[in-house]
Design a protein around this nucleic acid. Structure first.
Lengths: 210, 210
DNA sequence: CGGCATCCTCTTTGATACTG
DNA sequence: CAGTATCAAAGAGGATGCCG
């Protein structure tokens, strides 16, 4: 990207991360940790492969991405955020929080990946009853199941199936997210195809932050 | 901007404010409040006039900018942020804070406007001695003087000349900012052409936040 | 298959000139 | 003052090819 040529912290930040796709690549790396090229491409539906290669090179030059040759058994390149890259997290949260209001209806053709839920759930939601025993929720929406552990005042999220979930939520991403955010109540969500197995009260623990 | 087509809050936010220049226009409107077109252009050195017109229209459609026909005595159009637009402030702070680390040397040809200091000073600096009587500093750098009031634990900044400043700091933006951020000590700043009139201790009140 | 590089087309941006 | 009009240059998107 061409520099804005302004001696201003915001402009300088945008000189580095203001390019198209750059912040979404940071999102992927922040969510997944070290990632292969093809995993990144999969988490960035719509990106052209040359774009991804270009951006990764630029981000490496800018000091926010580091590439690492994985040792022989794997024999692949792994891309990581540098420390400086990880420091973008607060900016991602702030933008994501602002964008949350735009997550109403899923536009036609909008892609979805389950692991995108990790950021919002961990940072925009809270444990409504920190003193009660922890609750495990499995979300089945998108390309893979996600486990949500709510307990001790915090929310932790990771991909995979839960061993013995208290609650299992199955449905379209728009409906699952709408239910969690309070845009739909349980009745409305069910009308839109949501299925809930196990303890309905488990979900009450997971509440959007003020 | 073409939509990313991803059902993700960050991607949705970038669909709206990820275009080139958009966040810098938000910066200008946030700093100045209601602004005329030509004032915006002046605060955005490097922007092409058709870009500014395009962006303002898009931002209006997106609901983050509102245009207002000022009444007869002024008879001009004023551009404002909507409430939704003002909610971008936390994202601007976060990005600006990240970009502050890039404010080392002023690149050749980098433009500067004094009012850009307002955001960083108010939000990235703090009053180091909240219980002592307030201090007024006048910064003379860039296109216009700025008044910095440090007192009661807060920092307030506005354009203009101070009536009876405790301290007056004159010099190149790079040096003034370097001094405030602690990149230069007073000796080093003076070597680079900084002039300080009045009480040297006034400056000690203004300290970067952790 | 993973990790790109090339080629081509289309869109966006930038510089400048001009207008009600 | 507040923009439009015009045109050239840069960047993004899509398809495909290459190489270990």
């Amino acid at each position: 990207m061409r520099s804005y040529g302004q001696y201003c912290a915001l402009a300088k930040a945008l000189d580095v991360v203001g390019d198209r796709w750059t912040l979404l690549i940071v999102r992927e790396l922040a969510l997944r940790g070290g990632s292969r090229y093809t995993d990144l491409r999969d988490g960035l539906p719509g990106i052209a492969t040359n774009m991804l290669a270009d951006r990764l090179r630029e981000m490496e030059e800018a000091g926010i991405v580091r590439r690492e040759a994985a040792p022989p058994p794997v024999a692949t390149t792994l891309f990581h955020l540098t420390e400086r890259g990880e420091e973008l997290a607060p900016a991602l949260y702030a933008l994501g929080r602002w964008g949350a209001a735009l997550m109403g209806e899923r536009a036609d053709g909008d892609e979805f990946r389950s692991h995108w839920l990790q950021y919002p759930l961990q940072h925009l939601f809270t444990d409504a009853a920190p003193d009660e025993p922890p609750v495990v929720i499995e979300l089945r929406t998108g390309d893979q199941p996600m486990v949500v552990e709510v307990g001790g005042g915090a929310v932790r999220v990771h991909p995979g199936a839960a061993e013995d979930p208290d609650t299992v939520v199955t449905g379209d991403p728009e409906v699952v997210i709408g239910l969690l955010k309070g845009r739909f109540d349980l009745r409305a969500a069910r009308r839109r195809g949501l299925r809930l197995d196990g303890d309905e009260n488990g979900l009450r623990r997971l509440q959007p932050q003020g």
